[in-house]
Design a protein around this nucleic acid. Structure first.
Length: 323
DNA sequence: ATGTGAG
DNA sequence: ACTCACATA
């Protein structure tokens, strides 16, 4: 009922997973972005196939798959494994970097630096917090909480609370909780809050201040004029949650709501369709492309439906966007 | 300005 | 792919 095209279960899924794992290895451990991209591209090609590749010879004809990746596919089809992947999985550096990057704010570059200075586990990291910046300290402090999913019932209470506080500021303030919550999923990874009002007045900082004073926002990771990133917790709840709040000018609001509601795959498909119809769609605006391919002025968008209508894309409820 | 990281 | 924020230079 809710989807046409899932990323899940295509005929070459096992091979794709292995190639993507190799891509991670090349990117995070070897820092070879080109090789990493090559693996990713090959995996993407395979994931779009509706039949199973039967041999390396078969695979090498496909775009993005050359001699070396074809050989690995051949090897896997014959032996059930790839030596290179086995080696990567045994590489301690891979495991260490994967562990350290669990901390929000630690990416592969800093993880590798830490490893090279002898910090090889989260435990070690806790003894060396002086090496971390503000974001990373918060990531470490709440590491366990941030790895827990948020039940829908808790999301509902947070939504109610945030909207109540917003209304105390200005009763016509517009708030939308996006992400997987808006798509109706039973759990979410974090809370993504969009805020605007009809006059595009920016209440972001005021809202953040209020939510902080009421004890809901407990930490700030980063705060600019249009985006807040931080941590929150409801009274009577145990876990701290990642929260993002962003102000979007009213004219851009529904493009933003669409974009931040996702899913990623759905967005891709929708943008692709927009292009087909001669439009370009991004998180800010929908614009018609001229004959030269130059985008015109942003179109007036007053709802998500408007966007679908402009590009003749059958309207999908958020719960139908779980692609 | 540039690199890192998040989303 | 693209945007934003931050840190460092």
């Amino acid at each position: 009922m809710d989807s046409k095209r899932k990323p899940k279960s295509h005929p070459n899924e096992d091979i794709c997973d292995m190639l993507n794992e190799l891509a991670n290895y090349e990117n995070n451990v070897k820092r070879d972005v080109h090789r990493s991209r090559a693996y990713r591209k090959a995996a993407k090609t395979l994931s779009d196939l509706n039949y199973r590749v039967k041999s390396g010879e078969d695979a090498i004809k496909l775009p993005g798959i050359g001699k070396s990746i074809a050989a690995k596919i051949e090897e896997y089809l014959n032996t059930g494994e790839m030596k290179k992947l086995n080696a990567a999985r045994k590489d301690d550096h891979f495991a260490i970097i994967n562990d350290l990057t669990r901390v929000s704010g630690i990416g592969p570059v800093f993880a590798k630096e830490l490893m090279e200075s002898g910090i090889t586990s989260i435990e070690e990291l806790k003894k060396n917090i002086h090496l971390l910046n503000h974001h990373q300290k918060i990531g470490l402090k709440y590491l366990n909480d941030f790895e827990q999913k948020i039940p829908r019932s808790e999301m509902e209470q947070m939504e109610k609370f945030i909207k109540k506080v917003a209304k105390e500021i200005e009763k016509n303030i517009i708030i939308t909780i996006c992400g997987s919550y808006r798509r109706g999923l039973p759990e979410s990874g974090d809370i993504d809050v969009l805020i605007t009002d009809e006059n595009s007045h920016n209440y972001l900082n005021l809202l953040v201040e209020k939510l902080t004073n009421k004890g809901f926002i407990t930490d700030t990771i980063a705060q600019g004029d249009t985006k807040f990133m931080g941590v929150c917790k409801l009274q009577n709840f145990e876990k701290h949650r990642r929260i993002d709040i962003r102000f979007i000018p009213f004219n851009d609001y529904y493009c933003g709501v669409l974009y931040f509601t996702g899913s990623q795959m759905f967005n891709q498909e929708m943008r692709r369709h927009a292009l087909e119809q001669g439009y370009t769609l991004n998180e800010h605006s929908l614009r018609k492309l001229g004959s030269t391919g130059v985008p015109g002025e942003p179109l007036v968008v007053a709802s998500e439906r408007d966007i679908f209508e402009y590009i003749s894309f059958p309207y999908k409820e958020p719960s139908e966007r779980n692609w």
